[in-house]
C-alpha cells in the first residue's frame, strides 16, 4: 500500500479543517502544470520553501521533462543592429544578439551587446564576439551562467571570417548517453567548422575541417 509521507508545506495553526496534501501528491499535481506556462511553476515555487525545493530538485525536473517530452520553445535569438534605421545612430555601436520570447519566460539580460548568437541547443546559447579577435562563449540565458572558451587560433579568421561556424552540443555520455530532456549542468561540446578554399586550375574546392572543444 502507498506509504504516507509528511505533508509538503507548513500548515497554518489557525485552520485545521482543511486537508494537507502529502508531498508525493503535491508533486503529482505540479507535474501536470503546462510546460508552455513556466510562470505557473515559478509562482508555485514561491508558495513555500518545501515546494521550491521540490520544484527545483533534480528528481522533479527530470520527471517533468519525461512526462512532457518535447521541451517548449521559450524564445529565439536574433542578431540585429537595434538602431539601424536611425540616421543619427552611433556608427560605432555594434550589433546585439537579442532574445525574443515565445512564452512568458524572459531571461534577466535578454540583450547581449557586441555578441552574436551562432547556435542555441538544449538550453545553451553559443555566442561569438563581434569586435576584435573573435571570442567564443557558451551562455545559459536563464541561469546566467557563462563559460568563456579558449581563443581561436589566428589561422581561423585571418582570411575571411564568414568561412567558419560553430555549434554547441550536449556531451553527456554517462548512463548510456543523454536524452536531452535535462542537459543543464552536464558537459557540452563546441564543434568548429572551418571551410578551406583551394583553387586548383579553374576549380574551387572546399574542404571542411572539424575540431572540437569539450567543457
Amino acid at each position: 500500500m502507498p506509504r504516507r509521507r509528511p505533508p509538503a508545506g507548513l500548515r497554518s495553526d489557525e485552520a485545521t479543517s482543511m486537508v494537507v496534501l502529502m508531498e508525493e501528491l503535491v508533486e503529482e499535481i505540479l507535474l501536470r502544470f503546462p510546460p508552455a506556462e513556466p510562470a505557473s511553476l515559478v509562482r508555485a515555487a514561491l508558495v513555500c520553501k518545501p515546494w521550491c525545493r521540490l520544484i527545483s530538485g533534480r528528481r522533479f525536473r527530470r520527471r517533468f521533462s519525461e512526462v512532457h517530452r518535447s521541451p517548449p520553445m521559450l524564445g529565439y535569438f536574433c542578431n540585429l543592429y537595434p538602431d539601424a534605421g536611425n540616421p543619427n545612430r552611433n556608427k560605432d555601436a555594434g550589433p546585439v544578439s537579442r532574445f525574443f520570447p515565445a512564452s512568458a519566460a524572459y531571461p534577466r539580460h535578454p540583450d547581449q551587446a557586441n555578441w552574436s548568437a551562432l547556435d542555441a541547443r538544449h538550453g545553451r546559447v553559443l555566442l561569438r564576439s563581434v569586435r576584435g579577435n573573435p571570442r567564443i562563449s557558451v551562455w545559459d540565458p536563464f541561469t546566467g551562467e557563462r563559460w568563456e572558451l579558449p581563443p581561436l587560433s589566428d589561422t581561423w579568421y585571418e582570411d575571411d571570417e564568414d568561412h567558419w561556424n560553430a555549434a554547441v552540443l550536449c556531451a553527456a555520455t554517462g548512463g548510456g548517453g543523454c536524452d536531452h530532456l535535462d542537459c543543464r549542468g552536464k558537459p557540452f561540446l563546441v564543434v568548429y567548422d572551418l571551410l578551406v578554399h583551394l583553387l586548383v586550375g579553374d576549380w574551387l574546392l572546399e574542404r571542411a575541417n572539424l575540431c572540437c572543444s569539450e567543457t
Binding site: R11, F33, V47
Partner: peptide
C-alpha cells in the same frame, strides 16, 4: 489520481502564491 490531480492543477492556474497558499492552507515561510 490523474483526474483529481489534473483538476487541482487547473485550480492553481493563474493564481498568485498568496492565492495558492490560501487554497492549500499553507503557511508562508519566506
Amino acid at each position: 489520481l490523474d483526474v483529481t490531480c489534473h483538476k487541482i492543477s487547473e485550480m492553481m492556474k493563474g493564481k498568485s502564491p498568496d492565492q495558492i497558499r490560501e487554497v492549500f492552507n499553507i503557511k508562508n515561510d519566506y
